[in-house]
Design a protein around this nucleic acid. Structure first.
Lengths: 246, 246
DNA sequence: GTACGAGCGATTGTATTCAATCCTTTCGCC
DNA sequence: GGCGAAAGGATTGAATACAATCGCTCGTAC
């Protein structure tokens, strides 16, 4: 299972190269290494990550679907603008998706405990969530706030996994990148408090309380929403218009 | 330009081959030509559509992101099951996305009419919607219900275009395939009535009535939801379980 | 007769190669 | 001196070639 480094004498066949490149580029965009408007060429990325252009192409297509880059035929790709205008909509939709996910997860947890033998898949997802919660607590204790955006999105995706709804999980995955983007911009403000709410949500899911899990998740997302808007949207609220990208 | 039947002296650079292949495969899945569980190989698809494996790979990746196929490394892709279990969630999320889109579209329409010169982009989107509405009316009049699923999704995507929210449009595009899938399964039942509601929504948007547009769109999606569930989910409701795919 | 393992065919993942298109620069003309 | 058009370089899109992996079948041992 593990890619031993001794085995890599010639292969270069990772079978995960596109995913690795995708994560790396997205990370660079989210944390500001790649600034909006910058043009990215396939050849440069291929050289940077030590692969050929084919995996890079797949990664760029995925990033385009996620809204991180914009491409035109034969004209290349550029990094998209930070979606400030869309933040309001994004939070609204995210609230519904995540609330539904939380309800589903609680229902499924109850079903798993009722059954004689919980499914292996469910258990491994639950264990992964426990680890994520511990890692996040350690990061908070050590003031390592830079680690929180990734842990945050992994927690939410983990809950989606636990919910068992493939459609909802795919949808959340679709917008997870932008959520992380917005989260990273506000992590120094609300990061610690926000992380603390995760254990309450987890407890409600474990208890099988559908309504409680849904309510807590809605509140969790709503708080992030308000915090973000107060910090970033307030100055632009007066003119009532959108500030950039027409 | 045209793919001559002579030998491929020149490789025919379409620059749109992946999109064409993507639409074709998705269409085959939606309309039942490709049945769930069937294994699809890249080579076969490449031969069928007269392209190489590279564009086929891109199309398969996109289909995977949309949830139409499932892939494992080195193990190939299979057509996913019809998402009956997820239909409930899908309709719920879709309701929020489309309601928000309708509200946004009405707001933007009012802004366009208030300005001296509406933007070219807005006008072309509005014109396209008018054509779609006419085409749909003709299809209904001619009892050509098979045309409605595609026209339906084009109408809703067109409204998203009109809303000006790139995030919401991308999100709707993400689930549009499955919406069309569900719609096609129920078009003989609710197709005509459902189509008639589109002009009411369009009128509310043109009038700039945000609340009205949102209300109508929520009702429109909600009706589809109820109709679909009454037809497909009711028989399975008694046993309280999910029937397939765990 | 059944279970286990090695060999083989089939299929995917990536690299390399070549054609088509776009963008920039420069040359010619007004 | 300014403007327009064509040529060249740069970059993307697709096809072909090759390496790595998986699933299946056949053979063998128990």
């Amino acid at each position: 299972m593990e890619p031993s480094r001794a085995r890599r004498l010639r292969p270069e066949q990772d079978a995960a190269a596109p995913q690795r490149v995708l994560d790396a580029i997205r990370r660079d965009i989210i944390f500001g290494t790649l600034l909006p408007g910058v043009r990215v060429t396939e050849a440069a990325l291929a050289t940077k990550y030590g692969v050929s252009r084919v995996p890079v192409r797949e990664a760029l297509r995925a990033l385009e679907a996620e809204g991180f880059v914009e491409s035109k035929p034969y004209a290349g790709s550029t990094v998209a603008e930070i979606p400030l205008d869309d933040a309001e909509d994004l939070f609204a939709v995210r609230g519904v998706i995540e609330s539904t996910i939380a309800r589903r997860a609680a229902r499924r947890a109850a079903a798993q405990f009722a059954a004689d033998a919980p499914s292996t898949q469910w258990w491994s997802a639950r264990r992964a969530l426990a680890d994520i919660l511990d890692d996040g607590d350690r990061a908070v204790a050590a003031d390592a706030l830079a680690d929180l955006p990734e842990l945050n999105i992994r927690f939410h995706l983990g809950v989606a996994e636990l919910s068992g709804s493939a459609s909802l999980a795919a949808l959340l995955r679709q917008i997870s990148g932008k959520i992380e983007w917005l989260y990273a911009a506000d992590v120094d403000n609300r990061g610690k408090q926000s992380w603390g709410e995760h254990r309450l949500i987890m407890a409600a899911i474990d208890a099988g309380s559908e309504a409680e899990a849904e309510r807590l998740m809605a509140g969790h997302v709503g708080s992030s929403h308000r915090g973000y808007m107060e910090r970033f949207a307030a100055p632009r609220d007066a003119d009532g218009g959108t500030a950039h990208r027409g």
